[in-house]
Amino acid sequence: MRTALVIGTGLIGTSAALALAGRGVTVHLTDHDPAQAHTAAALGAGTDEAPEGPVDLAVVAVPPAHVAATLADAMGRGIARAYIDVASVKGGPRRELEALGCDLTAYIGTHPMSGKERSGPLAATADLFEGRPWVLTPTRDTDTEVLNLALELVALCRAVPVVMDADAHDRAVALVSHTPQLVSSMVAARLADADETAVRLCGQGIRDVTRIAASDPRMWVEILSANPGPVADVLTGVAADLEETVQALRALQSADDDKRRGGADGIEDVLRRGNAGRERVPGKHGTAPAAYEVVAVLISDSPGELARIFADAGRAGVNIEDVRIEHATGQQAGLVQLMVEPSAAPGLMDSLRERGWSIRR
């Protein structure tokens, strides 16, 4: 791949362009808002000047509702040897292209499983896709050269290719991406009119659950409008669990011992099923999640403190597998939770104490 055209310079399009440009590909940028394409070009993602002839690959990075029309226009003008889109739904756009009579041999639907709560070119980074799954949905009609160019794009972005059927992909993202967005937003919506005293009690749990609720509503309306059926199917199951959980909680208020026991059993069932589901979420390096020991350290909110604790852990010869920071409300301090192998935890705690750190259990 020597040349590429990125159509749509939001977060995903600009991030892909930055990755390609950084690896020697000549990237042309276009957007319905020329100022946005100019911004992406200024960031080093390529040039907003039109290519002189057909490019090797056209990357369509527009909202799902506009994918088919944008692809059909690009194909009609013959601007590339191969065409891909990076929308978060795959079945609908492909069927729209078929209905428009487009030649699908030169097209493959793709979806990089990466993103941020922020959108637009200023949020883009060249390493956005590194180590992340990038779904490819070829059909029997897909030309081998087109598939190879798509795989080259994935490799240049340092992502991990995953081949799936388009409709299977849409059902999968309904479960692991689209429904979590809605559920996160529903929980966060409870905070909008909550008493200020209650909001001040927010801890790490509510921050974890509502993190993605900060996403752009307009963008998510477009995504969900393109995949409503599979998302509704998943939410139907969630709604059934919610109803059963509500009934179990009501039973815990009963004066009848049997009803209370039944309520407790119902709550325990949903929590245990949650444990089982959580255990299936891939952990570090895509493997099954490991059982790490948490070493919690009190840390002040001062420049250099994080670097110092990581350096001290390194001096102790301990690899930090993961890290979380729990901020203390109203204080210039917080807890750094260092996740380490269980066998390494005692030595790390001793070493950090010797260096003056305050360990919390």
Score class of each variant (00 low, 15 high):
W220N: 08
V25K: 06
A290R: 13
D143I: 03
D216E: 11
A69V: 15
V135H: 06
A214Q: 13
A214T: 09
D193K: 10
H178D: 14
P64H: 11
P138G: 07
I12K: 08
S185E: 03
V6R: 01
R94I: 14
V246W: 06
P63S: 15
H285P: 04
G205I: 00
S15W: 05
D165H: 01
P121W: 05
I325Y: 11
S343A: 15
S254C: 10
A174S: 05
L224E: 11
S185K: 03
A40W: 03
V318K: 02
T3E: 13
G334R: 12
D167Q: 15
V209H: 00
R171G: 07
P63Q: 14
M113W: 03
Q253H: 11
E305K: 12
A124K: 00
E243P: 01
V234F: 07
E222D: 15
M113Q: 07
L43Q: 00
T14S: 03
S184A: 15
E130D: 12
V183L: 13
Y83A: 02
A126N: 00
H178L: 03
L5Q: 04
T26C: 01
G274T: 08
P63T: 14
R190G: 09
R273Q: 13
T125I: 11
G266Q: 06
V183W: 02
V176C: 01
A345Y: 08
V173K: 07
P342E: 02
D257N: 10
E321T: 04
E98V: 15
G266K: 04
R308K: 15
V146G: 12
Q332H: 08
M75R: 04
R272Q: 12
D193S: 13
P217E: 02
I206Y: 03
L147S: 10
R260T: 11
A65Y: 07
L104I: 09
K116A: 12
A126F: 09
R355W: 04
V221E: 14
I325Q: 12
V6A: 03
D256V: 15
T287I: 03
A333F: 01
E244Q: 10
V163P: 08
P93I: 08
A41T: 05
D312N: 05
D350W: 06
T30Q: 10
A192N: 06
I299R: 11
A316D: 08
